[in-house]
Simulated scan of single mutants.
Amino acid sequence: MDKCSFQLKHSYLALMFHLAVFAVLMTLLYLLLPWVLWCSLLLLGGAAYLLFYRKTPKITGLDYLDGKEWTLSALGAKHRVQISHIIDHQAYIVVYFQHARSKPIIVWCDQMPFQQWKSFKVLAKMI
């Protein structure tokens, strides 16, 4: 198979998904909890976003090498990884790695052009 290179950009779909889940959760909590407790949970949710979500590694590219070997580019650094398995959820694809220390990555459909997305899905089915 030819060398496949996938350049990833920032996903606005993922951000909108996370904000929608947070908004639904906060609306339900607003209906169930006193106002002061709701405000404290709102601040806690904002702090969790700033501390944890923004610190996730920004993957900028995936390069297919051979079999389950891939090169993962993250902000200038390149790592050679082996993919354990890939799960396609239509709007996003979850990529799991062989090493237990490596966290799985989520590739959303708006992170690459449509043609690359289609070829990435085909490649994911082949692995």
Rank of each mutant, 00 (worst) to 15 (best):
D110R: 12
C109W: 08
K121N: 11
I127Y: 13
V107Q: 06
V24S: 08
L13W: 09
V122D: 13
K58H: 04
I59G: 00
W117G: 02
V94I: 15
F120C: 05
L62A: 04
W70Y: 12
I105H: 03
H89Y: 13
A100C: 10
D2V: 07
Y96K: 15
L44C: 06
P34M: 00
E69C: 07
D88N: 15
C4R: 08
M1I: 05
A48V: 03
H89Q: 11
L37N: 02
P104M: 11
I59C: 09
V81F: 11
S119M: 07
R80D: 09
I127L: 15
D88A: 08
L8K: 02
L62D: 05
L31K: 10
P104K: 02
H79R: 13
H79E: 12
A48G: 05
P113L: 09
I86M: 15
F6H: 00
I86Y: 04
Q90D: 15
K68G: 09
H18F: 10
L62W: 07
V95Y: 01
Y64I: 09
Y64T: 00
H85T: 07
Y49C: 06
Q116L: 12
R101D: 11
D63Y: 08
S40M: 09
L75M: 07
R80T: 15
A77D: 08
G46P: 07
H18L: 12
Y30E: 06
L51R: 14
F120Y: 03
V95Q: 05
K68C: 02
P113K: 06
A48Y: 10
M26H: 08
W108Y: 15
K9T: 14
S40A: 06
Q82R: 07
Q90F: 07
C4P: 03
R80I: 15
W70V: 10
Y30N: 13
Q7T: 10
L28C: 14
L42I: 01
V21R: 01
D2C: 06
W38I: 00
W35C: 05
I106D: 04
G67T: 00
Q116C: 09
K68P: 01
V95F: 13
W38T: 03
A100K: 14
W108H: 06
A20Y: 15
L8R: 00
T56A: 06
T27V: 08
C39L: 12
Q115Y: 04
H18D: 12
S84C: 04
K9P: 01
A77M: 00
L41P: 03
L33D: 05
G61M: 06
A77S: 12
